[in-house]
Measured scan of single mutants.
Amino acid sequence: MSGNGNAAATAEENSPKMRVIRVGTRKSQLARIQTDSVVATLKASYPGLQFEIIAMSTTGDKILDTALSKIGEKSLFTKELEHALEKNEVDLVVHSLKDLPTVLPPGFTIGAICKRENPHDAVVFHPKFVGKTLETLPEKSVVGTSSLRRAAQLQRKFPHLEFRSIRGNLNTRLRKLDEQQEFSAIILATAGLQRMGWHNRVGQILHPEECMYAVGQGALGVEVRAKDQDILDLVGVLHDPETLLRCIAERAFLRHLEGGCSVPVAVHTAMKDGQLYLTGGVWSLDGSDSIQETMQATIHVPAQHEDGPEDDPQLVGITARNIPRGPQLAAQNLGISLANLLLSKGAKNILDVARQLNDAH
């Protein structure tokens, strides 16, 4: 009898209710805020589980004197976190989706994509230029951005401005803007500013005609071990179906173009009346040469937790077992079709030249 009692006690200790789920994140304040929001949602869904947040620095956090596009290494903000995932030191990792490459290392998958916040870019102005827009900034004003995508589009749109690289986390960039006289304004992701509670610093939100956004911008991705079915089931509740389908289309477009950090590629997606609209573009580094096109596809946005595919093969690095396969494939095909259209119009040449120029500098 006593033996059975011990077995029952052991089973209770090993039951999922007692389990601590370890969540990996970057150390920056924004990353911690984003991770806290994901953990809060998981806690609400699984009140019996405990969650421990483990923060670590990544290569991208450490190399702050070089433009991201020049470092010449993929997975700048993800490699150390993936290493911890691989060694079973954490069970899942919360990322900004735009930091996750469209091809993940073997053994990993994006197990959830959370509801997207505003994906557009924002302009934050130096205190002396508050009330201005990019259009009304004085001639030769210097605007800071760490992104080739932003610089290429904005140089084309605002030729009277000069664009220079600015690195560091959000706090560091804002301090550089406010305390030094080098920059009249800087460009940042609206979602990051909003998550930090800095709505009052948003001086201008850039519309798609001015600057399309990065693939996955404004959404959070939760990376897990691809074979860890328990954790895949656990994080599945975080999937937002519309965000998922938009981001599958965007990531398929980028992957098929073979774009990345070192080339200016941008997108804009919208879901309306059962249609998914995808606009994508590529630019030369100075913005003088560009190709942009829009395509659409009829896609039914499923309700969360309709029964999805059981075999769960990944699409552009994403596993969404609780979302039907048909809409996911339709979104992926839309991204591939748009990429093929741009490639047929000469996108590869623009991107190759951009890559060579970026590598040469």
Rank of each mutant, 00 (worst) to 15 (best):
D230E: 13
T133N: 14
L76K: 14
R246W: 06
K62A: 11
S37I: 12
H83R: 13
N200Q: 01
E209W: 01
I113W: 05
H300P: 10
R195W: 05
P313H: 06
I54T: 09
T35I: 01
D178M: 11
F77T: 01
R355W: 15
Y213G: 09
L68V: 12
S57R: 11
P119H: 10
D99I: 01
P119E: 06
R32G: 11
S141K: 08
K98C: 05
V123P: 05
I21A: 13
V237W: 01
Q50D: 03
Q296D: 04
G60I: 01
F125S: 04
S290P: 05
V23N: 01
E86H: 13
N88F: 12
S337T: 14
M196H: 12
K128D: 08
L334V: 15
G221L: 05
D230P: 11
S288V: 12
E80N: 06
E209L: 05
P101W: 01
R195L: 11
K74S: 06
G281P: 01
A31Y: 01
M271K: 10
D121H: 03
K132H: 10
I53H: 01
V123S: 08
L134H: 01
G111V: 04
L42Y: 04
A189S: 08
T294V: 12
K27E: 10
H305Q: 13
D61Q: 01
Q275F: 06
V23K: 01
T298P: 05
D273H: 06
M271C: 06
D178T: 07
E117K: 10
Y46M: 13
V130K: 07
H239P: 07
D352Q: 11
L193F: 06
L244Q: 15
A270R: 13
K74A: 10
H207A: 14
K98A: 04
F253M: 14
A297Q: 05
P101N: 07
K74R: 05
S75N: 15
S141H: 11
L244R: 03
D233G: 07
A84P: 06
G60F: 01
I231T: 07
D228T: 03
T279S: 10
K87S: 13
C261Y: 07
A252R: 03
A44M: 04
F125N: 08
H120A: 05
A122G: 11
D91S: 09
A84W: 06
A40C: 15
T58V: 08
A191G: 06
M56H: 12
M56V: 07
L220T: 11
T35W: 05
N118V: 12
I291Q: 13
V353Q: 15
C211Y: 09
A331M: 04
V142W: 09
E117D: 12
N340P: 01
E82S: 10
G259S: 11
K140V: 10
I299L: 10
W198S: 10
S141R: 10
A55P: 11
K348D: 12
T298F: 06
E250P: 01
S146H: 06
E210P: 01
H305F: 01
L276V: 13
V263F: 08
K27C: 12
A252H: 01
G346Y: 01
L338G: 01
R321T: 09
A249I: 01
D121Y: 03
A31D: 01
I21L: 15
D352H: 15
L100N: 01
A40K: 13
E209S: 05
D307C: 10
Q332C: 01
V235F: 01
G144L: 06
N333Y: 05
E162D: 11
A152C: 10
R116W: 04
D359V: 03
K345N: 11
L245Y: 14
T133D: 13
R355C: 01
L343S: 06
G326E: 13
E135A: 13
G218E: 04
R246L: 10
D99Y: 01
K115H: 08
G221T: 06
Q155F: 11
L68S: 10
R173M: 01
L206P: 05
I33R: 10
H239V: 03
L81G: 07
S69I: 11
L234R: 07
K128G: 06
A219F: 01
D121V: 01
V222H: 01
Q229V: 06
L315M: 09
S290N: 09
R156D: 07
L342C: 05
L64M: 08
I166D: 01
L104G: 08
K79Y: 12
W198I: 07
I205L: 14
H268I: 03
S45H: 08
T66S: 13
P324K: 06
S288G: 13
L351Q: 15
V267L: 11
L92W: 01
K70Y: 10
A191V: 01
L334W: 08
L232S: 04
S141D: 07
G203M: 01
D91G: 05
F129M: 15
S37E: 10
R156F: 05
L49C: 01
I186C: 09
V94P: 05
G203T: 01
Q356F: 03
V94F: 04
A339Y: 04
L338K: 06
N118T: 14
L76A: 06
T190H: 15
L334M: 13
T172I: 08
H199M: 13
C114L: 10
D359S: 03
E89I: 13
L137Q: 05
A44K: 13
D91W: 01
H305V: 10
S141E: 09
E162G: 09
V90Y: 05
A297F: 01
S344Q: 06
H160I: 10
R225C: 11
K128N: 14
G131P: 06
H268L: 09
E250T: 03
K27H: 10
N171E: 13
G218Q: 01
R225P: 13
V123E: 01
R225I: 05
E250M: 01
L49Y: 15
S147W: 07
L220R: 03
A214T: 08
Q229N: 14
E52I: 12
T78K: 12
L134R: 03
E223S: 03
I113E: 01
L30P: 01
I63D: 01
K43W: 09
T102W: 01
R195H: 10
L92P: 01
G221D: 01
V237A: 01
R251M: 10
I113N: 01
P302W: 11
T294Y: 01
G168H: 03
L193S: 08
H300G: 13
F108N: 08
P264V: 01
V103Q: 15
N88W: 13
Q153E: 05
I110S: 01
I187G: 06
V282E: 01
K98V: 01
K98F: 01
L232P: 06
A31F: 01
V39N: 08
Q29A: 12
T25F: 05
T25D: 01
L342E: 03
G346Q: 01
A249H: 01
I186E: 15
R225D: 06
R175Y: 06
R167E: 01
G107M: 13
E258R: 01
N118R: 11
F163E: 08
L329F: 11
L285M: 12
R325H: 13
N340A: 04
P101T: 11
T66L: 09
L42I: 10
G24N: 01
K87C: 12
I205D: 13
I187T: 05
P208V: 06
T41V: 05
G326A: 15
L170T: 07
D307V: 08
N340K: 12
P241H: 08
S57I: 01
A360L: 07
Q217D: 01
S28F: 01
V316P: 06
E210Q: 05
E139L: 14
A330L: 15
Y277N: 10
K227C: 01
T145R: 05
L188T: 11
G216D: 01
K227S: 09
S184N: 13
D352M: 09
V222Y: 01
D233S: 11
S284D: 05
D286E: 13
L254G: 01
M212A: 01
E139S: 09
E117T: 06
F51H: 09
H160A: 05
L357W: 01
E179C: 10
P106K: 14
C114G: 07
G335I: 01
L206E: 01
F129K: 04
N88D: 07
E242I: 01
S28K: 01
Q296C: 01
D359E: 11
L64S: 06
A360V: 15
D240W: 01
L100I: 14
H207V: 10
T35D: 01
A270V: 12
L351Y: 12
C247M: 04
N171A: 10
Y213V: 01
A249Y: 01
S290Q: 01
D65R: 12
P159W: 05
K345F: 15
